[in-house]
Amino acid sequence: MYNTGNLVKEMVERHGRNRDSLMPILQDIVGRHNYLTDEAMVEVAKELDISAAEVYGTASFYSFLDTEPRGRYVIRVCKTITCSMKGKNDILGAIEDLLKIKLGETTLDNQFSLLETNCIGWCHKAPAILINDMPYTELTPEKVLDVIKGYMNK
């Protein structure tokens, strides 16, 4: 949970109150906090004078606009064919063992969430993952542990 506070107001000031502003507002909130709280969606709905169901409907359409609580770092493991063939399952298993969470879960300290994603366009350097917006490619189980340990120490 994060404090909605002036966040929504700030985004609305930046992008305006038109219906077209909905996407950039939601993207910016997620950009800062990784997911949309119910309060944030209700607040956006009020500011844009649309219904909260409509905001939720829009957000839930996009995989990257999460409406469930997520950790500070969202790890998305590419599940599409090339990455699968190049060892995606081993990567996933290594992360699960390191963080002691399963796919879809968030660590108790709210630092990491582990999700799958559809193709992120790094087939030529498979297997790939995203951590927030940053891609990591040509991974091995050893390499991915180093990457995540780097985030643990941040």
């Binding site: 119910d38 969606m41 209700v42 219904s51 909260a52 169901a53 905001v55 939720y56 409907g57 839930s60």
Partner: peptide, 27 residues
Amino acid sequence: VSAIAVANKGSHQKISSFHDRPMSHVV
């Protein structure tokens, strides 16, 4: 009123209230 809207996509698409709350608890 838009108490209901289209949520999710593809085979998961459904007609949903805000965060799928019970209809008695939404607008």
